[in-house]
Nucleic acid binder design. Sequence first.
DNA 1: CCCTGATTCGC
DNA 2: GCGAATCAGG
Length: 259
Amino acid sequence: MGLIGHGAATRAKRPEKQETWGGASPGNDRIQTDPMSWTDERIATLKKMWESGSTASQIADELGGVSRNAVIGKAHRLGLKARPSPVKPNEEKPEVKKPAAAPAPKPAAKRPQVAATPAPAHTPEPEPRPAPRAEIPSQPVPNPTGDMPRIVSVGPGGFLRQGPGDQQPPIPPAPPRRLVPAKPSPEIADKTSLLDLNDKVCRWPMGHPGEADFHFCGEAVNPGFPYCVEHCGRAYQAQLPRGARRPPPPLPFGGPRVR
DNA sequence: CCCTGATTCGC
DNA sequence: GCGAATCAGG
């Protein structure tokens, strides 16, 4: 006794999103009705974007009519999951508590969650972690003494450039992507691997670091450049003036929705 | 504070 | 099955 069930006292109600398609005016038949159920297409888009690394918010915004929670819930129901989640590194650590400090029983009476989770605390899954993977050197460029003659090369874009040393590559060409736990699938048989790199072959990364088939271009370099002619055209681009930002990332999703 | 995803639980 | 409410880490 003595325990008075004080409901949510300071719990501010924060309806994440209560989008109501108020636009559904009477007489408006034809077009899809409110249900907005998870059609196959919507699910497909959800999957695609989810696996693509898009955030739940973006997916929800793209799909429209659904909250990000709905997206997350659906994704989990679909069996999707596993993405860098801010909260969920839970890994039972054996013997890390102090016997003297006591278990420090947490009241945790914040909410009647009825958890009742026995939590066996058994982790019979050692899961052997593969050794760390070598990283790509940003710019190994052995370029030793300045014995390199001043070569003026012409890029595909018709640009002129001095030899290395006068200028450094402006932007790193490696598109940052989701890192994966390194798969043991050396499918890079005839591919140019990290060890195959030298100043004669193109260092343009193909794929994403950490992936099984990650390798390098390996084509003959454009004289004076770390990349071949083709990739020079991608690595060295004129700086666009402010205001002319470049937001055109490939949109491989099913429905190119324009807003 | 914002963001994120995970989870719970009423519907 | 769905998703708001809530939790929790960055």
